[in-house]
């Protein structure tokens, strides 16, 4: 393709320069120095990082806080994953029906995805207000006394889950829709001839053939759940409120409020480790339930 070799080399260097520089400066070097930092004690302000081996890690693992953060995150995941799967499969199916007015629903479900998390969290903090919010007002109409939501230690996380479902439904719904559109319609036609009910068709055809998409959504949303951040920061203003302590929020506080850079980076590597383990586990377990033959 090139007349001269030197011309080719110049082109390669010229075109790769920005991203290579970025790779080095904002990815490789940071990964390396983050590993080193996690083995040090450093407050940024005075002096050099002190090498302290694995002390940060052992301190974190010994702290009650780490296990609380893990417990809170698991609580979020246990509530969020089943709900988002049910809602997004439903939305995917709705969008897949070719009824009138579907374009309106499509846009409507998508608006929360466009809303920034900060704005969305502001809205939900107000919606979930125990005395003056709509959710408890609506519950009141059917005779239920709503909980204190974000101010209650059991109900704070479910409140954050609700907001997250609201925000993510349109996004995962579209992904489910893409999965549904990939299912060959002859399966349904054959089932129709055999006289299968709607429910049977859903159980025996839709679910198994959608399982790769469901698996994908599960993996992605668990990774996202570990990285929960803006909703917690904005919805819960009280940083000492233990039931909503989560990974990224703690990392942010340690690094940029207490300036414990070593401790914070060690925390971030533990976050990476958690995500890695959970994702690997899912990849291992997928054989049991994900159907890849079409």
């Amino acid at each position: 393709m090139f007349y001269k070799k030197s011309q080719k080399i110049t082109t390669i260097i010229l075109f790769l320069l920005p991203s290579l520089l970025g790779l080095l400066l904002f990815s490789l070097i940071p990964i390396g120095s983050s590993l080193y930092l996690s083995l040090s004690e450093w407050d940024v302000i005075g002096g050099q990082p002190q090498f302290i081996k694995l002390e940060n890690y052992s301190n974190i693992l010994k702290s009650e806080e780490f296990w609380r953060v893990l417990k809170n995150t698991s609580y979020f995941i246990t509530l969020y994953i089943p709900l988002i799967l049910i809602v997004s499969v439903t939305v995917g199916m709705l969008l897949n029906f070719k009824y009138k007015g579907i374009a309106i629903y499509r846009t409507l479900f998508f608006i929360p995805v466009l809303t920034s998390w900060v704005a969305g969290a502001l809205i939900w903090r107000w919606v979930l207000s125990p005395e003056y919010g709509v959710v408890n007002a609506l519950l009141g109409y059917i005779g239920i006394k709503g909980p204190g939501w974000l101010y209650d230690k059991t109900w704070a996380m479910p409140g954050i889950v609700l907001a997250s479902i609201w925000k993510d439904t349109g996004f995962f719904g579209l992904i489910m829709l893409a999965g549904l559109q990939g299912i060959d319609s002859t399966y349904y036609e054959a089932a129709e001839i055999d006289g299968a009910s709607n429910w049977e068709k859903f159980r025996k055809i839709t679910l198994p053939l959608l399982s790769p998409t469901i698996f994908f959504v599960t993996v992605i949303s668990i990774i996202n759940s570990f990285q929960l951040f803006p909703q917690v920061m904005v919805m819960v203003l009280e940083r000492n409120f233990a039931p909503t302590h989560v990974f990224v929020e703690r990392i942010y506080l340690y690094a940029f409020k207490y300036y414990k850079m070593g401790y914070a980076t060690a925390f971030s590597w533990l976050l990476f480790l958690m995500i890695f383990i959970v994702t690997m586990l899912q990849l291992k377990l997928q054989k049991r339930w994900v159907n890849y033959d079409t």
């Binding site: 904002f26 990964i31 120095s33 930092l37 990285q227 990974f247 690094a255 980076t265 971030s268 990476f272």
Partner: peptide, 15 residues
Amino acid sequence: TMMIPGQVTMIPNYL
């Protein structure tokens, strides 16, 4: 590099 979450690199990036 896509494997490593942004929270790991954000502190060194800040520095």
